[in-house]
């Protein structure tokens, strides 16, 4: 049953400094961005009564998406032209809809709009933020796996200063994150992948859209001239208690030529690396089987490229 509104207070700071100062209170207020998780809990009567910090009133958190130049690679980008894009920065309140509408992000980071379009309906996409998806730390988050596969870093600000944490280091257990209670996610920085990188994004759910995934794989691979795997990222959602980067499987593949033997070795490694969860949405057995099949599909189609 819905919570009683009287149990909740919301503070609306005018500046980032004010917001960060308020986070030093005990207990610290809970940051409120798009509200797409919090309002659901409120409606279900499961939201903890307390003080919430409205981020919409802080202009610094609402900056548009920034695409900045990277290091020139003459071989790929030609001489004399503009600098190649090197990094995309999302602000704390960048929504899924913002990313879907941004032509350059669609081109540079194609997995982000793919993830964005599968998250909820249009109303949710217009409210929900990428930073909120990271902070909420759901193991089924759809937005986190592609960000992690792209090696994104999380910009954490507090009254004491700013620090950068690799997204792949951000989670340590179910709903356990590197964010301290006095910190706010103020930005997400995503390096643009090397030209020619191949990505893979697949979400398996019960229905086509507006479904929480049963298994999701976001993958990114960079191949060398003789088909050797220079770098690979394999990130799974809904399989482990938190968004999981399969480092062991990645390391088995890195440096190896992409060929059928490597694929079966990778699948065997993944099979022992994953310790899937069992819950109402599916079983551990199903998740393991399908996670391995998705990896096989990713590597198989990449081999065919």
């Amino acid at each position: 049953m819905k919570s009683s509104i009287a149990d909740f207070a919301v503070i609306s700071p005018r500046t980032l400094a004010e917001a960060l100062a308020s986070l030093r209170q005990t207990p610290p207020p809970v940051p409120l961005a798009g509200g797409t998780d919090i309002m659901v809990l409120l409606n279900a009567g499961q939201l903890e009564p307390g003080v919430y910090l409205n981020l919409y009133s802080v202009p610094e958190l609402r900056r548009p998406i920034e695409v900045s130049a990277g290091v020139r690679d003459a071989g790929t980008w030609g001489a004399g032209g503009a600098d190649p894009p090197g990094e995309v920065r999302l602000s704390a309140l960048t929504t899924y809809a913002d990313v879907r509408r941004h032509a350059e992000v669609r081109r540079l980071l194609p997995m982000l709009p793919l993830a964005a379009r599968e998250i909820g309906a249009v109303q949710i996409q217009s409210r929900a933020t990428w930073a909120g998806n990271i902070a909420n730390a759901s193991p089924a988050a759809d937005g986190v796996p592609p960000l992690m596969a792209y090696d994104a870093t999380v910009e954490l600000s507090s009254a004491a200063g700013v620090r950068q944490v690799a997204l792949s280091e951000f989670y340590s257990g179910y709903k356990q994150t590197a964010r301290r209670p006095d910190e706010l996610i103020t930005g997400i920085r995503i390096p643009v992948p090397a030209p020619g990188s191949i990505d893979y994004f697949r979400k398996v759910g019960t229905r086509k859209f507006q479904a929480i995934s049963k298994v999701l794989l976001a993958g990114l691979v960079e191949l060398g001239g003789s088909r050797e795997i220079r770098k690979i990222r394999l990130v799974f959602a809904s399989v482990m208690p938190f968004t999981y980067r399969a480092r062991k499987t990645e390391s088995v593949l890195e440096g190896r030529r992409l060929e059928p033997g490597a694929v079966s070795l990778a699948v065997e490694t993944l099979r022992t690396e994953l310790k899937p969860i069992d819950d109402i949405r599916s079983t551990a057995r199903y998740r393991l089987k399908v996670a391995c099949n998705l990896l096989e599909e990713f590597l198989g189609t990449t081999m065919g490229c």
């Binding site: 019960t206 049963k214 079983t283 057995r285 199903y286 089987k289 399908v290 391995c292």
Partner: peptide, 17 residues
């Protein structure tokens, strides 16, 4: 007829997942 039931039918639980 969930995906899990299909996978379980195609690869019965006694076999390797």
């Amino acid at each position: 007829l969930t995906p899990k039931r299909v996978i379980d039918a195609l690869h019965p639980p006694e076999s390797k997942p």
